[in-house]
Design a binder for these strands. Sequence first.
DNA 1: CGGGAATTTGACAATGATCAACAAGTGTGG
DNA 2: CCACACTTGTTGATCATTGTCAAATTCCCG
Lengths: 238, 238
Amino acid sequence: MLSNTRVQSESNTPVTGMSNWLGDGKSPTIKIGHGFTTTSERTLESHEHLFMVNDVQTQIYQVLDGVIGVYNMLSDGRRQIVTFYYPGDLIGVEDTGHWMYHAEALCRVRVRSIPVTTIDTLLHTEPRFGQAMLATLATELAETRDQLLSLGRKSALEKVATFLLRISRRNQREGRDAKQLYLPMTRTEIGDYLGLTIETVSRNFTRLKTAGVIKLHSKSDVQVDDISALEKLAEGDQ
Amino acid sequence: MLSNTRVQSESNTPVTGMSNWLGDGKSPTIKIGHGFTTTSERTLESHEHLFMVNDVQTQIYQVLDGVIGVYNMLSDGRRQIVTFYYPGDLIGVEDTGHWMYHAEALCRVRVRSIPVTTIDTLLHTEPRFGQAMLATLATELAETRDQLLSLGRKSALEKVATFLLRISRRNQREGRDAKQLYLPMTRTEIGDYLGLTIETVSRNFTRLKTAGVIKLHSKSDVQVDDISALEKLAEGDQ
DNA sequence: CGGGAATTTGACAATGATCAACAAGTGTGG
DNA sequence: CCACACTTGTTGATCATTGTCAAATTCCCG
């Protein structure tokens, strides 16, 4: 079964270029300055929370396996997922003392915790570490701004196409198959990420399937047959 | 006339806490390490572009007076304004070599340019400067994520209320009147920021006026009469 | 004061939400 | 291993919010 292995990171190489500093997730020991420190590991079951809004932030997390969804809520329950974090990604680089969002495991997830005190030490002793953190935040900001364009100006179909394309490109960057997408999140979670209802997400998956752009092998396994069509749809080109 | 003075920053104190490093905008000279360097100043007329997408980035800008709109476009002309930059704000901290967006003056704007080489020097010689940059980016990321919630999940009325509230709070932070808002941008630009059409923006300004929450002294001058009502509307409470 | 641009208002249409039913997975216990 | 219940996803019908098109009004600025 495809689903069970796809998010397990065959390589734990972070996209963020932080691996020099924080290791590859295979060793519990990371190098800090001229010493070493030990980080702890934690496993979350699907739907378990990593942290809640307003919790005091004492750790920065690195996803080792699985996907974490970070979200914001209105008092009446409307929810906006702000980002998905995949293996290699760091959560909480923008430390402000308290978590400003909720974070939930979307499947079984393994994370490594690094105390913020450790991060602070690195920031003070290793100037290049600060640079890497800046680059990480810059990337996150750019992705979030892209998502603003999706949410503000794209149609439902364009949003779904953009979403699939984003996953495809991440696969490519990580050296995996750009045409076989594994979606560990539910339709509801995709909807909460794209600002759509579950029904609209579902209908537009069907539209893409009917148009021959994708195949739906199972709820979570999507095969992209026509990437360039997906790209055109995502940008609204005709 | 209210309009002509409101955005002129009475105090140029940056929200970002960068004033120690980059000065207050009143002197063309800033201190770098143990030396000094001179920054240049530029004035843009309304609708003039500060930079375009894919331009090589050689400068970081600090807004001194006026407001800059940074936006993203689809090929068919749909536009999403990603952020507004006000006096004190830094533009381009997330330097990636090329500008990823367009930036346009929304009124007459004065900016200060700082060469990225200067910033790089500061990053290498002053560890605390890197910290300040991290804080700046973290704030921007948080604001952008808030905006995701608006665009993805809020109704038109809630979006407009959220927008006005954001300006009111900025005024408060800057020591200005939280109830007298000056909007240098057009309804089109507000729409492009909120993911709405000009007509919907206009209708919802009218709804707020009719409900007695705001007064519209002129196109650009809004008086908030009931901040708590605005807060309730912005969060969709009741 | 006049002219052009920006905004407001109105009528109608369309996209996506809501409500409802059904289907397809998933897991559990017999 | 199957039956049943439960969760998740799909499809259909209808409704509502917001977009589109058009006209009237107001605001600026010369």
